[in-house]
Simulated scan of single mutants.
Amino acid sequence: MIEGIDAGTFAVLAVAVLLGATVQGVVGLGVGLVLAPIAGLVDPSLLPGVPLWVALAMPMLTLSRDWPDVDWSGLRWAVPSRCVGTAAGVVVVAMASDRMIGIAVGAMVLVAITLSVRTIELRVSRRSLVAAGVVSGATGTATSIGGPPLALVYQHRDPPVVRGTLGVYMWLGTVFSLVGLAVSGALVERDTYLALALVPFVVVGFVAALLVRRYVPTRQVRFAMLAVCASSAAILLVRSLAG
C-alpha cells in the first residue's frame, strides 16, 4: 500500500474514480467533479494533485472514440486563455492552506451544479470561450476542477462534440496545471503513485460508460452525477468551514 494511504481510503477513492469515469464517459466530464470533493473529505492533502493526475488518463480513453467530433475552432480560443488562468491557480495553491482549497473545491462544485441545473445558455463565441478558458485554468489548477466552465458553454451541443472537445481541452489543461504546480514545487511524489494505482478504475469506468450510453438516457445519468457531486461537495464545504 502507498505510504500514508490505508486500504479504506484507497477503496473510497477507487469507487469515486470508477463512478466519475463512468459519468465522464457518457456526458463529457465527471472524474474531477466526483473525485475532488471525496479526496478532500478523506485527506485534504490529496488536493489538487491526485485528481489532476487521474484526470490526465480519462481524456485519452474518451478521444479514442470521439476524436472526429472535436471542435478545433473553439479550442484555439479556449486553450491559450487557459494558460493565463493556470498562472493564477498556481499562485492560489502556493498561498492557500488545505482548508482553503477544500472550501474552494466544495464551492466550485456547488456553483457548477447550480449553473447546470439552471441550464444557463451561453453562446459558443470567442468571448465566452476565452472567459471559460481563463476561469477553468484558475479553478482547474487550484482545485483540480476545470471542466465545468467550458462544459457550460458547450452543454447544448451534440454529446460526441461535447465529449471530444472537453477531452482535448481537459487533457491539455491538466498538463498545463501539472507543469505549473511542478515548477512551483507543489506536486507530491506520493500523489503520482496513488493516481497510477487508480488508473485501472478509470479504464473500468470508461468501459462501463460504453455500455451505459446504449441503455441509459444521458439526461438521467447527468442528474445522478449532479446529485452525487452535490452531496460530497456540500459535506466537504461544511467540514472545511468548520475547520
Rank of each mutant, 00 (worst) to 15 (best):
L33W: 09
L181E: 06
L181F: 12
A88N: 05
A87F: 04
G40H: 00
L63R: 03
A224K: 03
A186K: 08
T174D: 01
A209H: 10
L166T: 06
G133V: 00
A104M: 15
I120N: 12
A233L: 01
G102H: 14
F10G: 03
L29A: 00
I2Y: 01
L178G: 03
V31P: 05
P200I: 04
P160Q: 13
A57G: 08
R126W: 13
D69N: 07
L241C: 14
G32D: 02
V34F: 02
S81A: 09
A87T: 03
A94P: 03
V179F: 13
G74I: 09
T165N: 15
A230F: 12
P68H: 07
L61H: 07
A138F: 04
T192S: 06
T9F: 01
G146L: 09
G20C: 04
V135G: 11
Q24M: 14
S177W: 00
T192H: 04
L56Y: 11
I38Q: 01
R118S: 06
E189T: 11
V90T: 12
L236S: 08
R222C: 03
A21Q: 06
V238R: 11
M108N: 14
W53S: 02
R76L: 07
A138V: 09
T62Q: 12
V105N: 00
V130E: 06
I101A: 00
A230W: 13
V23A: 13
S231G: 14
R190Y: 13
A230R: 11
V199T: 14
V203D: 09
G133L: 10
Y215V: 11
M95Y: 14
P68G: 02
Y154A: 06
G89C: 02
G40F: 01
A14N: 11
L115S: 01
A96S: 14
G185T: 07
G185M: 07
V34Y: 04
G106D: 13
A234E: 11
T119S: 13
R163A: 03
V124T: 13
A186L: 09
R190K: 15
R118T: 06
A96T: 08
L196H: 05
L122S: 11
G89N: 06
T9W: 00
L181H: 08
T9I: 02
T62C: 08
G133Y: 09
P200N: 08
R123D: 15
A21M: 05
Y169N: 15
R190P: 12
L110E: 10
R65N: 09
L198W: 03
G28V: 04
W67R: 08
Q155W: 10
V203T: 08
L61N: 05
L194Q: 01
V34S: 01
I120C: 10
Y154T: 05
L41F: 09
C83G: 15
F176D: 07
R126E: 14
L47C: 03
L18A: 02
V42H: 00
V130R: 08
A151Y: 07
I2D: 00
T174N: 05
P51F: 00
S81N: 01
V105M: 02
C83A: 15
G185N: 03
V183M: 10
R99N: 04
W53D: 06
G147F: 09
P37R: 10
M95H: 13
S136P: 10
L110H: 10
A78G: 09
R123C: 08
T22K: 11
G167P: 03
A227S: 15
F223N: 02
D191S: 15
P48I: 05
A182Q: 12
F201K: 07
M95K: 14
V54E: 01
T62V: 12
I113R: 15
I101R: 03
G30C: 08
